[in-house]
Design a binder for these strands. Structure first.
Lengths: 214, 214
DNA sequence: CAGTTTCGGAACTCCTTAGTTCCGTATATG
DNA sequence: CATATACGGAACTAAGGAGTTCCGAAACTG
């Protein structure tokens, strides 16, 4: 029945400390599953691949998850990090400054991997609505959430006019990044993200930047 | 070797007129393949499914295409219609009018199906660069091309300022439609498309529409 | 009306992979 | 040291699907 929530990784455990059910081992296996998923997709992925990558036996995987689908569902849902603390987000005083400050090599790499995972399960989503929800919540929504926050702060400080459709605006960059990775198979680099910010997002919210004039 | 270009559907043939190699039969089979692809994706699709849908024998399929991949490659590339004649595009005098005139039930349905096909092969694109190119050219590029044309006309008539990044702007709507269909599994209806036009695309090119005011 | 060709369809082979079982080993407990 | 538990790994079963082969039936050819 591909039931989720069966295992919550806890970490904060030194290393292998025994032969009791080791929940940090779960996390290692799930991480291996995510890696394989990103590389070959759900249908290209075999349980043996995941076991090998995690240096585990296939039996171990089936002791912890009931099926391949169950494993993948858990792996995807565990990709969701704690929501970023709003106080920890950049606060440069301008919307553009905040958006640009979000562009870091680490976040680009992270985003690319998440998008590749998404690519690996896209064809499943139609059949598995539960996975669709979990995947979106874990992979796509966090970035949109941050964008909504930055935009709302810009509205609150009067930098931009109130936006009618904040949810849609916040999806511009994630959508176009996903398109570029999935459909075009082009890399997402700093330059591309800057062109989205300056050429699409900021103009769309009424900021006339250095790019627009002709 | 998954070679393409092996069959060009001709149509313009009354019906079954003989036992010579019937190229309109190719088109029927390819259409069946596209339908199945849209419904279950590449990995969910079996050659038997396609044969059954086309009321053909599996042997017939293998007489015409060397492999499942070959069949799919041909099917996807045959989805590309002739490029729309620029003269046949709407010409209402305003960019918004042209964009809205492009929203027709037929085109919405067509776009949804194309996007579902794309979803069915996304995970393949990483392994099959040839398919990636063909799929993009057949499925995604035509719509972007139309958008580029409409935008360029608006620039030419002085309605909007010259756009630095026309290619990117033309991808806004296709990207966000794809995102909505693939990731969110929400329907793409007229209302959503209008909200993209008025809430994202037109603001991004500097048209202050009726939607923006708060 | 023979001869030819392609057809639809069924039966078949072969391979991959999900899921199971078994076993020797390593570690913690007492 | 004896016991119990979970482990990694390998061998196994079962099912599904790609690709092949064969055959009787249709329909064009001449």
């Amino acid at each position: 029945m591909t039931q989720l929530g069966s295992s919550a990784p806890v970490a904060a455990v030194p290393a292998k400390l025994g032969r009791k059910r080791d929940h940090s081992r779960d996390a290692e296996i799930l991480e291996a599953a995510v890696d394989v998923l990103a590389e070959v997709g759900f249908d290209g992925m075999t349980v043996d691949m995941v076991a090998a990558r995690a240096k585990a036996g296939k039996a171990t995987l089936y002791r912890r998850w009931t099926s391949k689908s169950d494993l993948v569902l858990d792996a995807v849902s565990c990709m969701k990090e704690r929501d970023a603390d709003p106080a920890a987000l950049p606060d440069t005083g301008t919307l553009r400054g905040d958006l640009v400050a979000m562009i870091k090599p680490h976040s680009i790499e992270d985003s690319a991997k998440k998008t590749r995972v998404m690519a690996g399960i896209v064809s499943l989503l139609a059949k598995e609505p539960e996975l669709a929800q979990v995947a979106h919540a874990a992979i796509m929504e966090p970035r949109a959430r941050i964008n909504r926050l930055l935009l709302q702060r810009a509205v609150d400080r009067g930098e931009i006019a109130p936006v009618a459709d904040l949810d849609t605006i916040a999806l511009i960059v994630p959508s176009m990044v996903a398109y570029r990775v999935l459909m075009l198979h082009l890399p997402v680099d700093r330059e591309f993200l800057l062109s989205l910010i300056d050429g699409v997002l900021l103009p769309a919210v009424g900021v006339r930047g250095a790019a627009g004039s002709g």
